[in-house]
């Protein structure tokens, strides 16, 4: 039985960035009146010369970050994912991606983590929007351990990145000290009957579903696709070859996200029975994350049912 400890991705990100900023003077954080919601207060206090407050102006914040990067800075522009990826999408496209500036667009409270705040505060189209833009790397860490490890790598990663995290504490998927390589999927369980490919907070639920399937004698492989772009196509093709069924699950619209990225590979290179699980193309009802995951069938039980449906096809 897995332990069920929890950690905050936001806090793992900011405490790691805070420590890295001493070691790497080129690291800068830019925010949009969101130092509280990103948990950047300590960074702002300890590194005032590496911190830039732009006020509630996401477009400006992203362009300013690009300008700073053009002078040699490694800039982390941080704010609620819902605004940072949509309000300033053109700034991400032009000033970050097209200009290939060393800017990390870090969206917090993504997916459904704002829960009852409603549709303005959901972020369920960001993967689709940003992975289509050339030069962008797209990352969705699964837990605090992975967030910390990735943040460390970003201190030395040159180029445009989008990283999305949630708001609340999430279950730990990985033991402390686990290592990751950007662009390489992390296999959490091996299996021969199907593969569940998940990202972000869905990874923990995917493992729960696999455990439940195991009790039925169904062996599910679980891949944490925390790098959605560039996606680990080898891991996807290997999973399709070896397990014959692919189920994707994400805290994102079923259109254009992780499922879309996997389908783009398999439909062209190795057509494989697939199921894409995520959020429907409709107005999301209100509730907290776990209530919504259950309602939309993307918690452990929901993924378990989805896997059974896929295998019946």
């Amino acid at each position: 039985m897995k332990t069920e400890t929890k950690g905050s991705c936001r806090k793992a990100f900011t405490s790691t960035l805070n420590a890295l900023a001493y070691e790497y003077p080129d690291i800068n954080a830019v925010t949009t009146d969101a130092r509280g919601s990103v948990t950047l207060e300590q960074f702002a206090q300890e590194h005032p010369e590496q911190f830039v407050e732009m006020g509630i102006a996401e477009q400006d914040a992203v362009s300013v970050s690009a300008g700073m990067a053009l002078t040699g800075k490694n800039v982390f522009v941080c704010g609620p994912a819902c605004f940072l990826t949509t309000r300033s999408l053109e700034q991400v496209k032009v000033d970050v991606a097209y200009n290939k500036t060393n800017v990390k667009v870090v969206g917090v409270s993504g997916g459904l983590s704002y829960g009852p705040l409603g549709a303005t505060h959901t972020t369920v189209t960001d993967i689709a929007q940003i992975r289509c833009i050339f030069n962008m790397t797209v990352l969705l860490p699964a837990d605090a351990v992975q967030t910390e490890a990735i943040t460390r790598q970003l201190a030395q990663f040159h180029g445009p990145v989008y990283m999305r995290m949630g708001r609340g504490d999430v279950y730990d998927v990985y033991p402390k000290g686990e290592e990751f390589t950007i662009g390489k999927a992390k296999q959490l369980r091996d299996g021969s009957d199907l593969t569940i490919i998940a990202c972000g907070e869905m990874v923990w639920y995917a493992v729960r579903a696999a455990e439940k399937l195991e009790q039925d004698g169904i062996h599910a492989r679980v891949l944490d696709m925390f790098t959605i772009k560039p996606i680990d196509r080898e891991a996807v093709l290997k999973a399709a070859r070896e397990t014959g069924h692919i189920l994707t699950v994400e805290e994102h619209s079923v259109y254009g996200g992780l499922g879309g990225a996997v389908a783009e590979i398999l439909s062209q290179e190795l057509p494989t029975p697939m199921k894409i699980m995520g959020l429907p193309d409709e107005d999301i009802i209100l509730g907290n994350s776990s209530e919504l995951f259950t309602y939309y069938g993307i918690d452990g039980d929901g993924i378990y049912k989805g896997a059974q449906e896929l295998l019946k096809k």
Partner: peptide, 27 residues
């Protein structure tokens, strides 16, 4: 060419970012 442009309304904020960073570096 320091920065690619074409879509309007990007140059001033990019220039502000450059100026903030250059000022902090005492350039």
């Amino acid at each position: 060419v320091e920065v690619s442009t074409g879509s309007l309304g990007h140059g001033l904020p990019v220039a502000v970012g450059m100026a903030i960073a250059l000022k902090r570096d005492n350039r």
